[in-house]
Structure formats: C-alpha cells, structure tokens
C-alpha cells in the first residue's frame, strides 16, 4: 500500500510540493464493490471476491484499454471504465493480489424464475462455463456460480443489445455475445440466471 502510494505520487504533475500533498493510492475498489469485494447492489458493482485472477486481469485491462465500458449505453461499464483508465500494469497486479486475499461470501440471491426452463437454456452455457457454472480457465470462461444475479442479468442484457462484446479486440466478449442470441427476452434471462443461482445453493 505504501509502495503504491509512492508510485502514485510520482505521477503527480507538480513534483516540488508533492511531499506536503495528501497521498492517495489505487486500492479504491471496495468503495463501490463493497466490503471484501462482496458486490454492492446499491451502486450496481458486482462481486470481485473469488473472481479468477486471470479473468480479473483481462477485464481490468479491457476496461483500461477501452475495450470494455466504451459503449454509450453500457451504463455500468461506463461507470467502471474511468476507474481503470489510469491503472498501470503494477497496480493491476497489486489489485489482483489484494482481491485474492478477500473472504469469499456467496452472493445473496435476489432473482427467482423457472428452474426447468433455466436448466435447458443453460445447456449451451455449460460447454464453457461448466455444468456447475464453476468456470474454465482454458476456455477463458469465468465462474458464474456465486456471482451477483442482478449483475449477470445486466451483462446478459448488454451482450444481447450489443453494448458488450462488440469491440473488435474483445475476442471472448464476441464469443459470449454470439452465445446469448439463444436467449429470447427478459424471461429467458431471468430463468437462466435463476438456474445459475440454484447451482450455488
């Protein structure tokens, strides 16, 4: 933390008076994402605790490089994008280590739906995300079980509407977007998320 604060101080335009200035660092994730990155519905910031380091790294880099969170209708993505835009490779690494130390608390369920319909809809998803939604690093697919259900709903909507997964460099996002075309409207989204919820019960 102290090391990071020093790195940040070095980026400040006016060095002469840097010493007397109020320091800050890049470990501010929990302001939005809640205690130990548990996710905060109040500001629509998802759970980070338990997130795979490789997935977290990819998303932070995508946000930083404007590959994610650049679409004008991706409201939550737009909120996140500037949070990452100033991050260095070192601070991304530091954040990943920090997140790795958090207590994982499974997300509270806020959505219910038709589980049978959800199970059917989930079959194609299982190929990459796993039958128990446990994720698959080799395929670049993150775990879904235990993630905030309201967040998954938002992301499915965003993929479907073309707010996410349309940037030419977002290879995994494009794959995911193609998969969501099998979902037909809000009901399907609800049902498949309700089914994913049931996997972590």
């Amino acid at each position: 933390m102290i090391r990071l604060a020093l790195i940040c101080l070095l980026c400040i335009p006016s060095l002469a008076s840097a010493a007397e200035r109020e320091p800050f660092d890049d470990r501010y994730c929990t302001t939005c994402h809640g205690t130990d990155g548990r996710g905060n519905e109040g500001v629509q910031a998802p759970r980070l605790a338990g997130m795979e380091p490789w997935y977290l790294k990819r998303q932070l880099e995508n946000y930083r490089d404007g590959i994610r969170g650049a679409h004008p209708d991706d409201i939550e993505g737009l909120a996140m994008q500037p949070m990452a835009s100033g991050l260095t490779d070192e601070s991304i690494q530091d954040i990943i280590e920090w997140v790795g130390g958090w207590n994982y608390v499974p997300a509270e369920h806020t959505i219910s739906g038709d589980l049978d319909a959800g199970r059917t809809l989930y079959q194609p998803c299982a190929t990459c995300h796993g039958a128990d939604a446990e994720g698959n690093e080799a395929l670049g697919a993150p775990a879904l079980a235990g993630q905030n259900d309201w967040y998954m709903v938002t992301q499915l909507r965003n993929f479907l509407a073309g707010y996410r997964g349309v940037h030419p460099q977002d290879v995994y996002g494009a794959q995911m977007r193609a998969m969501t075309t099998g979902l037909n409207g809000e009901n399907d989204i609800n049902n498949v998320v309700a089914y994913i919820n049931s996997l972590s019960d």
Binding site: I12, P13, S14, S17, E20, R21, E22, F24, Y28, T31, C32, Q81, P82, M83, S85, G86
Partner: peptide, 14 residues
C-alpha cells in the same frame, strides 16, 4: 493543494 478524490479523475487544486 486540496486533493479532489474523484475516482478515475483525481486532482490537486492549483
């Protein structure tokens, strides 16, 4: 010298 602690746009007032 005030730190404006706006996430994503931190500034020191000049």
């Amino acid at each position: 010298g005030t730190l404006i602690d706006e996430l994503g746009n931190r500034q020191y007032c000049e």
